[in-house]
Design a protein around this nucleic acid. Sequence first.
DNA 1: TGCGTAATTCTTGTCGACAAAGAATATGCA
DNA 2: TGCATATTCTTTGTCGACAAGAATTACGCA
Lengths: 236, 236
Amino acid sequence: MKATKAKAMPAPERKRGSGVKFVYDLLRNEILDLVLAPGSPIDEVQLAERFSMSRTPIREALVRLAGEGLIDTLPNRSTMVANLDFLNMSPFFDALTLMYRVTTQLAAQNRRPADLEAIHARQAEFAAAVKAQDALAMIATNAAFHAAIAEAGRNPYFNSLFSRLLDEGRRFLRLYYQSYDDRLPQQFVDEHEAMIAAIVARDTALADRLGKAHAEQIVQQIQKLMIGEERLDIAL
Amino acid sequence: MKATKAKAMPAPERKRGSGVKFVYDLLRNEILDLVLAPGSPIDEVQLAERFSMSRTPIREALVRLAGEGLIDTLPNRSTMVANLDFLNMSPFFDALTLMYRVTTQLAAQNRRPADLEAIHARQAEFAAAVKAQDALAMIATNAAFHAAIAEAGRNPYFNSLFSRLLDEGRRFLRLYYQSYDDRLPQQFVDEHEAMIAAIVARDTALADRLGKAHAEQIVQQIQKLMIGEERLDIAL
DNA sequence: TGCGTAATTCTTGTCGACAAAGAATATGCA
DNA sequence: TGCATATTCTTTGTCGACAAGAATTACGCA
C-alpha cells in the first residue's frame, strides 16, 4: 500500500501553475456573460476561499483581467467589474466596424485549408446555438466564429484588438438577449454564410463589403436595444 | 521631537503601491530602448535585490509586461524579453499603417484646442531631439507625438493598439539608430508639420493621405535597415 | 570512456502573515 | 443634537518562506 501523502497536503488536487489560469478563465467568462454585473465589487479574500487557494494567484488573475480592461482597480481601494460605457459607444462601434472589415478582408487573402475547417466548425456551432435558442451559446459561438476568421487573417495585432472588441460586444449582446428573451437572428447565420463564401473565393473586396455590412447590422441591433431599454424606462 | 519611526522600518523610503509602477515603468523603458536585449532572461530574484523589495511586486510588474507582449513567460521556466520577429514583419506594418491612417484622420475630425497644444508640444520636443542628434529622445518623442495625435482622435481602442505598435516600433528604430549612429530624419519633422496642418484644418482626407504616406515612409526606413544589416552580415 | 540514472541546485508558483491605507464606527465637545 | 476627531475594522500591498518543476551536476555501471 502506497503512502497516500495525505498528511501534509490536505486537498490541493490541482497542478502547480494551473490555479491562475483557472480563476482567470472563470472570472473572464463570468464577466463576459454578465454573471458578474458591471460595477459589482470583487473580493480577493472571498475568491481565495471559494477556490481554496491563496490570494497570490487570485491577484495575478486580477492583474491580467485589469490589463484587458475587464476590471477596474482603485489603488488601495476596491476592485470591481468594469462598467459598460453606454454614453461613449461610437468609438467602440468605429473600432468594431473597422476590425470586422479588416479581418474579413485579410482572411479572404490569407486563408488556408485548416482555417476554413475551423471557420466552418464555428459557424456550425453558432447555427446550432441559434436553432437551440441558447442565448449564451449564441453569443459565445458568434464571437468564436469571428475570432476564427480573424485568425485566418494572420495578423496578431488586429486579432488581439478584435478579440477585445468582441468580448466587449459579448457583454452588450448578453444584455440584449437577456432583456428580449432570446430572439433568433437567423439573418446572422445567413450573413455568416455569405462571408464564408467570400473568404473561400478569395474575394477580398466582397469580404470587405460583407464585413462592413455585418458590423453595421450588429451596431443597429445594439442601438435598437439601447433605445428600447430607454423607452421602457421612461414610459408613463 | 517626533519619533522618527526608524526602529522597525530600515529603508523602505517609498510609498505603498508605488513599487509596482516604478519597476514596471523602468523595465518597460529598458526593454523599449533595447537596454535589455530581446531574448535576454529576466531574473526575479535579481530584480528584487536591485530594487530592494520582495518578489511579489516584481512579479506583478512582469505579469503586466507579459500582458502587453513585452516579455515572454514559459510556465515553470524562465521569463525573458520578447524577441523581435524579423521574419513576419508585414502584419506589423499592415497594422501600423492602418493605425497611422485612422488615428490621424480621427484627430482631424475630433481634435480640441487642448489636443493641438499637446501635439505641438510633442512636435517641438521631437524637433529638439532631432536637432540635438539624441537618438533615444528622438525615438521616444516621435512615439509620443503620434500617441498625442491618437489621443486627439478619442478612440481608446485604437489608441491602445497604436501605442503597442509604436512601442514595438521604438525597438526596431532603436536598433536602426544604434547601428547607423543617429542619422537625422529632418524629413520626419516636415512630415509631422504637414500632419499637424491637416489636423488643424480638419481636413480628414488629407490627414488620411499624410498618415498613410508617413507610415510607408517609416516602413521603408525599417526595411532599409533590415536589408542593410543583412548585407553587413553576409559581406565577403 | 560513454551513457543512463540519481542527487542537487536553481527558479518559479504558492502560501500564510503582517503592515499600511481607507472606510466605518465610536467618542468627545460645543 | 451636530460635527470634528479619534479609534476600530476592513481590504489591499508587501514580505519572507516553503515546495514543486526543470536544469544541472554527480554518480554508477557497462
